[in-house]
Simulated assay, not measured.
Amino acid sequence: MSNVVLLSTRRLPPTYFDQVREDLGDQNLTIDVVGWVAPSAWVADKVNTFTLIGPGRMPAAPAPEEPVVVAEKPAVVAEPAPKPQPAAPQPTPPAKPKPTGAKRVVKAVEWRARKARKVAGRMLPPAIKSSAPVKFLRGQRATSDLGKNYWERVLSRRDVLTTIDQADVVIALDAGAIWAGWNLGQRKASTPVVLGLPAARRELDMMKAPVGNG
């Protein structure tokens, strides 16, 4: 039975781990996950361990189902409906006083600040804001920051490093986990560290292949 460690910075559903076993060709595969984001639902029945190293908390276990008890309906006795009472008139709220003195100056400054932000936002055309190059650069920067934070957190957790040391294959699942995967590959060359499930399948198949006599 093989043991793999999944490095992930995405939110994974429980059904994803069924797909992992299918793609790797081993229904008895032992899966340990090092996640930056908690899974979308309870996964204790899907993986060996799921270690959350990012913000948030793990989902709670589903509550056990309780038997449904059907209560008998009581007899209905017809009673005349009460007459509606007229609603009491609502008092008119007092008029809001206009700001005077120092308050009036503060309101004026806030209004000018809001107007300045709107003008600054209009200075960059919407077409540039939403253009593919700008979106790509923003995404690259965010991914780079996430990758560094993820790797630093992995290094700071002795339990995570122990789990990784016991793996047959370490799999970086997404762009945010690539930097951690690369560094782990440099630290321990004896354990394959790959990107994606297809590459992991090749490594596991080679491990299971009989060794020739040469």
Rank of each mutant, 00 (worst) to 15 (best):
Q140N: 09
A172D: 01
K107M: 11
V4Y: 04
A61W: 01
I178E: 03
A41D: 15
V134P: 00
V169T: 13
I128S: 04
V68A: 11
S8E: 00
D159S: 15
L7A: 08
D168Y: 07
G181D: 01
V106E: 10
L155E: 13
A113H: 06
P67A: 11
D205C: 03
T191D: 00
V70I: 13
P39W: 00
T92Q: 13
P55G: 14
P86M: 02
V154K: 03
R21P: 11
D26K: 04
G56N: 12
P133Y: 05
N149R: 15
I31S: 09
D165Y: 08
Q166W: 05
V106W: 06
P133T: 05
A200F: 06
V43R: 06
P89H: 10
W179I: 02
M207A: 14
R153S: 15
G196E: 03
A199W: 01
L173S: 08
V47M: 05
P97K: 08
V193I: 11
V70D: 04
V194I: 12
V119Q: 12
D23Q: 14
P86Y: 10
L137C: 08
A102W: 09
D26G: 12
L184W: 09
F17M: 07
P97C: 10
E79P: 02
A113E: 12
R158Q: 15
D32P: 02
P94Q: 07
A81D: 05
P94V: 10
R201K: 15
G35V: 08
A44P: 02
G176E: 01
L124S: 06
L137Y: 03
G212M: 10
I171H: 00
A172G: 15
K46M: 11
M58Y: 05
T9C: 15
R57H: 13
P192N: 08
K46E: 11
A71Q: 05
L184D: 02
A87K: 12
R202M: 11
